[in-house]
């Protein structure tokens, strides 16, 4: 029983990280149809900004979070304005372009900071564990889980309850007519891309104490995040949340039952089967036109 609960928590912890990475990806893909292959590098930059703030300015992880969010959002805004905005009529080319941007960012970090792994200390007040009987949970992982849920709630509120969210939804459904009612679509797109990038940065900052911070850390994360987006159903942030939970828990349980490598293969096979029978994911968007 205790092993089971520990595994459940390990899965939830993995899911919370996936959710943070996938949410930005899902918003950018859902809103703009752009498959952002540089997303993993935004995560990586988030981790490195956290490292730089900690190492050079002595700013701890928690106070660094808003700075990281804004910094990576600014990077995303720049990428959108400079490259992605020129390719909206050529969606396939954005895949190549963002992949290239990802490589450039990765190499810049490798040249500028070095290829070796960097250490980032977790916040002191969240060190240690909380135990319930035989179940031991890391405080920091509990924090990441709660934070990811809060970010999800905030994103949902942004999309559903604010005027920015309504404008974005209007542009997604009919760009031309939205512009005829005073919306600057390119501004909305840039803001959306920046927000998605900022979320990736936050994810990078939060996972930096848990994983090795290296220039290529984003690559494997973004693959998992793509799986989550596809399983969840494109354009549905609720689907993304549910899918993160499913993928995270499944990965954790397969890894326990089998081992890490075989567990991973099992998850991929499960997803392939799932997509075979439900190609548009868990929560497809059904529109009557």
């Amino acid at each position: 029983m205790e092993t089971f609960i520990n595994q459940l928590f390990a899965g939830a912890s993995l899911a919370s990280i996936l959710l943070m990475v996938a949410l930005g990806l899902a918003i950018i893909y859902g809103a703009m149809g752009v498959i952002n292959l540089a997303h993993g590098e935004f995560v990586m930059l988030g981790a490195y900004v956290t490292w730089a703030l900690q190492t050079f300015l002595g700013i701890g992880l928690l106070p660094a979070l808003p700075i990281v969010f804004l910094a990576i959002a600014a990077v995303g805004w720049g990428v959108e304005r400079a490259v992605v905005s020129r390719l909206y009529r050529r969606p396939l080319d954005t895949i190549l372009a963002t992949w290239g941007i990802g490589i450039v960012l990765q190499q810049l970090v490798r040249i500028g900071i070095g290829p070796e792994s960097r250490f980032i200390a977790g916040p002191g007040i969240l060190s240690g564990n909380t135990g319930f009987g035989g179940v031991v949970l890391s405080n920091y992982r509990i924090f990441v889980l709660v934070f990811a849920i809060a970010i999800f709630a905030a994103t949902w509120a942004l999309m559903a309850k604010t005027e920015f969210g309504r404008k974005l939804r209007a542009v997604i459904q009919n760009r031309e007519i939205s512009e005829c009612y005073g919306i600057r679509a390119e501004k909305v797109y840039a803001m959306t891309f920046a927000y998605g990038a900022g979320l990736a940065g936050l994810a990078g900052a939060l996972i930096s104490p848990l994983v090795n911070t290296t220039p290529s850390m984003g690559t494997y994360l973004v693959v998992d995040a793509f799986l989550v987006v596809v399983v969840g159903g494109v354009g549905s942030i609720f689907g993304t949340a549910v899918a993160s939970g499913i993928v995270g828990e499944t990965t954790a349980f397969f890894s326990m039952l089998l081992n890490d490598t075989v567990g991973r293969i099992a998850v991929l096979v499960a997803i392939i089967l799932f997509i075979r029978f439900r190609p548009s994911g868990l929560f497809p968007q059904i529109v009557r036109r």
Partner: peptide, 13 residues
């Protein structure tokens, strides 16, 4: 104020 052919209201609003 533009009222286009085919109305083009936002269907999910």
């Amino acid at each position: 104020g533009y009222i286009p052919q085919g109305r083009e209201i936002i269907p999910r609003f």
